[in-house]
Design a binder for these strands. Sequence first.
RNA 1: GGCGACAUAGCCAAGUGGUAAGGCAGAGGUCUGCAAAACCUCCAUCCCCCGGUUCGAAUCCGGGUGUCGCCUCCA
Length: 489
Amino acid sequence: MTVVLYNTLSRRKEPLETLEPGKVNIYCCGVTVYDHCHLGHARCYVVWDTVRRYLQWRGYGVYYVQNFTDIDDKILNRARTENTSMQTVADRYTAAYFEDMARLNILEADAYTYATKTLDGIQRLIGELEHKGYAYPADGDVYYAVRKFAGYGKLSGRRLEDLQAGASGRVNPSETLKHDPFDFALWKAAKPGEPSWSSPWGPGRPGWHIECSAMIREQLADTIDIHMGGSDLIFPHHENEIAQSEAATGKPLARYWMHNGMVNVGGEKMSKSLGNFTTIRQLFETNPGLSPMALRLFLLQGQYRKPVDFTAVALAAAQNSWHTLREGLEFGPQFGPNLGWQPQDLAAEAAVLDRETASVQTFQVAMDDDFNTAGGLAVLFDLAKDLRRAGNLITHTGGADTDSETLKNQWQTLVTLAQVLGLQAGPKHQPESPPGLSVAAIEELLDQRQQARAAKDFAASDRIRDQLQAGGIALIDKPGGVTEWYRQS
RNA sequence: GGCGACAUAGCCAAGUGGUAAGGCAGAGGUCUGCAAAACCUCCAUCCCCCGGUUCGAAUCCGGGUGUCGCCUCCA
């Protein structure tokens, strides 16, 4: 069995065959650091983080590189309005990026690259393209001559003639420096007051697309295994990357191109220009009870290539779903010791999980098929529900009807597979001393309630029950007049 | 206008030829003074519409309809 993934380049699912057996080189287009990340970014990086985790679990040595675009007009504009420097703005939102991603349990890349730290590579690449006749300088700018590259359009499936027809109203004829409306800037001459770097073409800064081509070459190789990013980057960004890199090296830039679908709001793409975006931090500020894992789960419940509609209802459903999974994940720490599991066993044995079980196989079959996370999640829910049931039976009746060994295996499987999807219950925040009522006070109130019930003064007994409930104490009335209680978390 | 994607229950969603996973919500039952919790059970004769291929189609083919994305910065 092998991993199959959808390749935008061929528009088909293809078996993953890496350049070097057992190793996968990945480059993922990162963010332009001029604002906080929104839910579209959340989806993108949750999806690729999950792909990365899965490939690792499947035994691949994964090397994952991601960039920060820290030279850009939008950053510059922001710096201008704030009367500060481009670097200050970039640093701030780079830091914010890391905070947001950590919250969503997204693993850090093996290497991060920055436009500001890639200028040598960028200039070398531009020089090479100029030398080979793919680029031409024009008044301090340097442009890529799109028509020189025969394969232009192969990723996005469009031809220049089509582009011309459709874009006729949108192409700006005032850009006279370009030989052709579809040529794009590799280097932009400095304007007064803007940060700039010296270059053979005069002071200036790099265009957007060139940084990725230069970074991939510098950090990875001429040809990498997988290049990923948002589907809105297919054209022109990734198309231009291909044109730049392949013209320079004569080799394919990436064997596989993967693209995630957009996050929609009310059926429309969430985007800056539409102004309909919610930042990750806004979401959690306005929904204090929302778990970051619920957002992650929400994003993994759909196929990564399809658009997903973000609604309050869907989010609430995901929160409830996460609750179910979390109860299963917490079964181990909660009940394991009572069932005779040794804490050290839990971690050690999970690491060498038996992969031949039906659960793991079902999970793997789903995930092998272009990362079918929704299919994989079904396995997690089956396990979590079984464990939740067992836990409830222990709490409510004193014992489960499944043997300890089976429960342990189920729990370890659940934890392991959840980890592959980046879903973690996280440490239980147990307060030092439980707040509210003391055990003695609770026992006293229960005693009073029992007396009231015996006297059939149900108004009084219900009042006590409400009082306890308000203090976070839930009651379980059992047959025979026995009442048990537990603190609700 | 060009290119592309998608359409499955109240909602989300998997499933690409063999007779509809999973989640959320909901319903009934047991228990209870009533609840809560828990446990048990149920919840798409059918996959946008119309044709076709096939012993058999949500799945393949043809034709519609609808929604969305890209073609400008975008994850």
